[in-house]
C-alpha cells in the first residue's frame, strides 16, 4: 500500500502542494496556526476539518469504485444518519445514538449491496434509488424541519477537539487507519482489485465476489453514516434537505483524482483521501480569495481539469501536465 505511494502518488501530492501554495498567495495567513481554547486554529486546520466528511465518504467510495461499482447514495445516507443522530441525541445516551445512526448506515449499504450483488442491478441505477428515496426518508425523520439538539457529547464529534485536532479530523484519520488495516492488512484488498479487474476470472479463482460486493457497499454506508454524524454534530442539528447534498459527486471526484479508475481494479485509499483534501483545499482557497461567488464553480472546474490532466498519461503524466498547462497560458 504505502509502498506504491511514491510511485503513482506524485501527481496528486504535487497538485495538493500547488493548491496549498496558491492558497498562501491569495491569503498570506493561510499557514498560520495558533492554539485557541486547546484547539488548533487556522485555515490549514479548516481544510482538514471541512474535508473530513468527503474524506470519510471517499474511504468507502474508493472500495466501491475499485469493485467496478459506484455509490450515488452516500449523500442521502449522510442525511438519514444525521437525522437519526440528531433526533435521538437529547433523549438517549451517546452509544445508543451512534449505534442507531451507524446501524442505519450499514442497513443502507446492505440494501445497495443486495440490489447490486444479488439482484444484479447496475450500481449506478441501484444506488440512485436510495439517493432519491434516502433524502425523502431523512425528511420524514426530521418532519421537514432542521432538528436541533443540545447534547454536548454529540456536539463534541463535530466541534470538539482531541489533542488539539478537531474531532472530525481525528475520526477521519481513525477511519482511514481502520480501512487500511481491514483492506490492506488482510487479503481483501487483493480480492477487491482482482474482482474489479476481472469479476469472472475472480469468481472462477474462488473469490466470494458477491459477499465482498455486499461488504464493500456496507462499508461505504458506514463511512457515510459517520460523515452524516459529523455533519450533524457540526451544525448542532440535522438539515435533511441539505446535509450531504451532492457530496457523493465530491467523493467520486476525490477517488478519481486519487488515481482509481472508474473501470475498477487498482485503487489507493490514501490517495483518495488526498483527493478529498485537494478538493477541500481548493474550496477553502476560493472562500479565502474574496472572489465573487459567481466564479466559484468556474475556478473549481479549471483546477479539477488541471489536476486530472496532470495525471493523464498522454500529457506525460505527473506534474509535467500542470507545467505544460501553465507554460502554455503564459505563451
Amino acid at each position: 500500500m504505502a509502498l506504491r505511494l511514491p510511485r503513482i502518488g506524485t501527481s496528486q501530492i504535487v497538485a495538493l502542494v500547488l493548491i496549498l501554495a496558491a492558497n498562501w498567495l491569495v491569503s498570506p495567513q493561510f499557514f498560520d496556526i495558533r492554539l485557541q481554547d486547546g484547539r488548533l486554529f487556522g485555515s490549514l486546520i479548516d481544510v482538514l476539518n471541512r474535508g473530513a466528511p468527503v474524506a470519510l465518504l471517499s474511504l468507502g467510495m474508493v472500495l466501491v469504485i475499485a469493485m467496478r461499482g459506484i455509490d450515488l447514495s452516500v449523500g442521502a445516507i449522510m442525511a438519514i444518519c444525521g437525522a437519526i443522530a440528531a433526533s435521538l441525541a437529547d433523549s438517549h445516551s451517546l452509544p445508543v445514538v451512534l449505534g442507531a445512526a451507524l446501524a442505519a448506515g450499514l442497513a443502507c449499504g446492505l440494501w445497495n449491496g443486495f440490489l447490486v450483488a444479488v439482484l444484479g442491478i447496475q450500481p449506478i441505477v441501484a444506488t440512485l434509488i436510495l439517493m432519491v428515496a434516502g433524502r425523502g426518508i431523512a425528511q420524514l425523520i426530521t418532519e421537514g424541519r432542521i432538528v436541533t439538539f443540545n447534547s454536548p457529547e454529540l456536539a463534541f464529534l463535530g466541534g470538539g477537539s482531541v489533542l488539539g485536532l478537531p474531532t472530525p479530523v481525528v475520526l477521519a484519520l481513525s477511519m482511514l487507519a481502520l480501512t487500511l488495516i481491514i483492506v490492506r492488512g488482510t487479503a481483501l484488498g487483493l480480492m477487491i482489485e482482482a474482482t474489479g479487474g476481472n469479476p469472472r476470472a475472480s469468481a472462477l479463482a474462488g473469490i466470494g465476489t458477491r459477499l465482498i460486493t455486499v461488504a464493500v457497499y456496507m462499508w461505504s454506508g458506514l463511512c457515510a453514516a459517520l460523515a452524516g454524524i459529523v455533519a450533524a454534530a457540526d451544525i448542532l442539528g440535522a438539515d435533511a434537505n441539505n446535509a450531504g447534498l451532492w457530496l457523493e459527486l465530491d467523493a467520486i471526484l476525490a477517488v478519481v483524482i486519487g488515481g482509481t479508475s472508474l473501470f475498477g481494479g487498482r485503487f489507493s485509499i490514501i490517495l483518495a483521501v488526498v483527493g478529498a483534501l485537494i478538493i477541500q483545499a481548493m474550496n477553502t482557497g476560493i472562500l479565502l480569495s474574496g472572489l465573487p461567488p459567481e466564479t466559484n464553480l468556474v475556478v473549481k472546474a479549471v483546477v479539477v481539469l488541471a489536476v486530472l490532466l496532470a495525471q493523464s498519461p498522454k500529457l506525460g503524466g505527473h506534474a509535467a501536465g500542470l507545467g505544460v498547462l501553465f507554460s502554455r497560458k503564459k505563451a
Partner: peptide, 25 residues
C-alpha cells in the same frame, strides 16, 4: 468587505464564516 455564498444552509454558512474570520485577521 467580503461576500460569498452559503447556499442558504447552516453547514455552508458556518464554513464560509470560518474562512471570513481567517481572512479578516
Amino acid at each position: 468587505v467580503r461576500s460569498q455564498t452559503g447556499d442558504f444552509t447552516r453547514a455552508k454558512g458556518k464554513e464560509v464564516m470560518e474562512s471570513f474570520i481567517k481572512a479578516e485577521g
